[in-house]
């Protein structure tokens, strides 16, 4: 407990200092453009009924897109990593598309899919796909050659070897990709809502801007930060549970 406290107090002190400065600074400025922290928290309390369903919409879409990306990209990555000609064919295209900023495809997606759920989920799916795909390819290629020998000496057929040896051995790398995808999906789901606006927390932010409700908008940003942090933390916890054997062997 003492050690925990010793490591934590500097961050809490910094946080407190920032909040106090914000509050005091805003009160001294007394400008409607700079609401103090307490006013933002009041806005958060009064708007929580509006914000909660919006952020749930955002999370729902992010989750669907993420699930789709995992279901499709992990097998695709394994195929590309295992089958040489497929890798030769597709990898240059992946490398070419990777630097394309995901939001830039939003207008293109809009032409085909409008601005509804499908369009937004498509953009998020596109974003989340790359880290998963690339890590799956690298992971399956990076499995230790010894494991290959093991599966041969056990006389496993290709499917058995894939399921029993390759996939578990690749899992840590794939999980890293999924962790990156989770973060990216959260970022882009808000962005996609702002570009293809119908609902979600991104739209809430836009509306707050259009109606000059700055405190409400800042409250929305606070909510996004907290939710994003919680989702990432939750995923790290899942990762720890799923890969306890990996962390046990790699920690010093």
């Amino acid at each position: 407990m003492n050690r925990f406290w010793d490591k934590t107090w500097p961050a809490l002190a910094l946080l407190a200092a920032v909040l106090v400065l914000w509050e005091a600074g805003a009160r001294m400025l007394a400008s409607p453009n700079v609401p103090p922290f307490s006013v933002v928290m009041q806005a958060l309390a009064t708007n929580s009924g509006v914000i909660a369903p919006q952020i749930l919409q955002t999370l729902r879409r992010a989750l669907i897109a993420l699930a789709l990306a995992i279901i499709t990209m992990v097998p695709l990555g394994i195929l590309i990593g295992r089958i040489r000609w497929l890798g030769d064919l597709l990898e240059p295209i992946i490398d070419l598309l990777r630097p394309l900023p995901p939001p830039a495809i939003a207008p293109l997606v809009m032409l085909f899919a409008g601005t509804g759920d499908v369009a937004k989920i498509t953009v998020i799916f596109y974003t989340a796909s790359f880290p998963i795909l690339i890590n799956a390819i690298d992971g399956i290629r990076g499995t230790h050659p010894l494991l290959h020998t093991v599966s041969r000496s056990l006389r496993l057929n290709r499917a058995e070897a894939l399921w029993n040896i390759d996939l578990p051995a690749t899992l840590p790398v794939i999980m890293t990709g999924i962790r990156l995808a989770v973060a990216a999906a959260l970022l882009v789901s808000v962005t996609a809502e702002m570009l293809l606006s119908t609902d979600g927390i991104g739209v809430y932010l836009l509306r707050s801007q259009e109606t000059f409700r700055i405190a409400d908008g800042l409250a929305g940003i606070c909510v996004i930060a907290v939710v994003g942090w919680m989702v990432n933390a939750a995923f790290l916890e899942i990762d720890r549970h799923l890969l306890h054997w990996h962390h046990a062997t790699t920690s010093e």
Partner: peptide, 22 residues
């Protein structure tokens, strides 16, 4: 570092786009 790293971890998942309107 102990003060700053958690703050950075906290702010990182915030989408830059979300900050644009404000």
């Amino acid at each position: 570092r102990q003060a700053f790293d958690p703050v950075a971890e906290f702010l990182r998942p915030l989408p830059p786009a979300a900050l644009v309107p404000m």
